[in-house]
């Protein structure tokens, strides 16, 4: 049954607060904890279990792990079938294959059946790095967000990831959680409690508010420090829950902003930038600038180089804000 031999080692972790680590690592460890607590948890992978970190679970619970091989469409269907017999399946592969190759399976079989499937994809965004465009999902959030009934979560750090995985388990219905490959800094405070559909305001700015998710939350926080020092009152909010969108918090932010910046490791088309634009343009129009990849594929490079190359940095956020006020 889905034998996995690789170098992943299990670590005991119950508290991810303050840990700088890749969100996929937090996932792998959390899954094992979850597996111990809940016998209904089953995990599926499509021949990437060492990279997605589901191999940890496979090693601990071989009977509840199903490697489906390089067949993402089948994996999603099998996950739906498992869900329909009362299991709570977590299906993992790279974000582009999960949401791209199996999009219609997710729409038709998972969401239209309201099957309780959790799709946790790793390698979201540009920080996949050297593998290049074929493996860098810059459209996955958009693809998942358009499907009725789908919940879409982009956690900012390990602490939030672990919480989001637990929340997804308690919630009944399809969930997409997008994780990353590279190490990310800890950003969420110790008393933070993740809730599906709830955004977190670090600080409400009177001039500018930066709405970010994923690793861009850390960049937003860096940018806000500089901007505040320079006299532009800047706030930051983590909108890890792309869908459902926390409209109440968004309205509050819009009412307090001369400018809203969105920042995401995703195309500016269809992600949190689009979601925010859609809402505020209908409800409380405020000038906006979206930071993300601009209708382009990624390319090879180290992940740090790529973040710079595509402007997914605190520096670009600062520049964008200053350019706006200089107009």
């Amino acid at each position: 049954m889905g034998k996995v031999e690789c170098a992943c080692t299990l670590r005991e972790i119950s508290d991810f607060y303050g840990k700088d680590m890749a969100t996929r690592d937090a996932y792998g460890i959390t899954l094992v904890e979850l597996g111990k607590k809940n016998p209904d948890i089953v995990v599926l992978d499509a021949d990437l279990s060492c990279s997605t970190k589901t191999a940890n679970f496979a090693k601990n619970f071989p009977d509840r792990f199903f490697n489906i091989g390089v067949s993402e469409q089948d994996m999603i269907g099998v996950a739906a079938g498992l869900a329909l017999t009362g299991k709570i399946p977590f299906a993992s592969t790279f974000a582009i294959f999960a949401t791209g190759r199996a999009w219609e399976q997710i729409r038709q079989t998972v969401c239209y059946s309201n099957a309780n499937v959790k799709i946790v994809a790793t390698h979201g965004g540009i920080t996949v790095g050297e593998d290049g465009a074929t493996h860098q999902a810059l459209e996955d959030v958009a693809l998942m967000r358009v499907i009725p009934g789908m919940t879409v979560i982009v956690p900012a750090d390990a602490y939030e990831t672990s919480q989001a995985i637990f929340s997804a388990t308690e919630y009944y219905g399809p969930v997409y959680i997008r994780l990353g490959r590279s190490k990310v800094p800890s950003v969420m405070p110790e008393d933070y409690k993740f809730q599906i559909g709830r955004a977190y305001i670090f600080k409400l700015g009177k001039d500018v508010n930066i709405i970010a998710n994923g690793l861009m939350v850390a960049e937003a926080l860096k940018a806000s420090e500089v901007l505040n020092r320079e006299g532009i009152d800047t706030g930051v909010a983590n909108f890890s829950s792309v869908k459902p969108l926390d409209e109440e918090t968004l309205l509050k932010i819009a009412k307090s902003s001369k400018l809203i910046i969105t920042a995401e490791e995703h195309s500016i088309i269809g992600g949190i930038g689009s979601a925010v634009a859609e809402f505020i343009s209908e409800n409380f129009p405020v000038p906006m600038r979206r930071i993300g990849t601009r209708d382009t594929f990624g390319c090879s490079g180290s992940w740090k180089e790529l973040l710079n190359f595509y402007g997914l940095t605190a520096e670009n956020i600062i520049k964008t804000v200053k350019d706006f006020f200089r107009r």
Binding site: M75, G77, L84, Q108, S113
Partner: peptide, 21 residues
């Protein structure tokens, strides 16, 4: 048992059900 109509997807679901049972 499951929503169908887009061809080619049901056997995967049936596999998942068989595994789950």
């Amino acid at each position: 048992e499951v929503s169908t109509g887009s061809l080619g997807q049901g056997l995967s679901v049936a596999c998942g059900m068989a595994l789950g049972l």
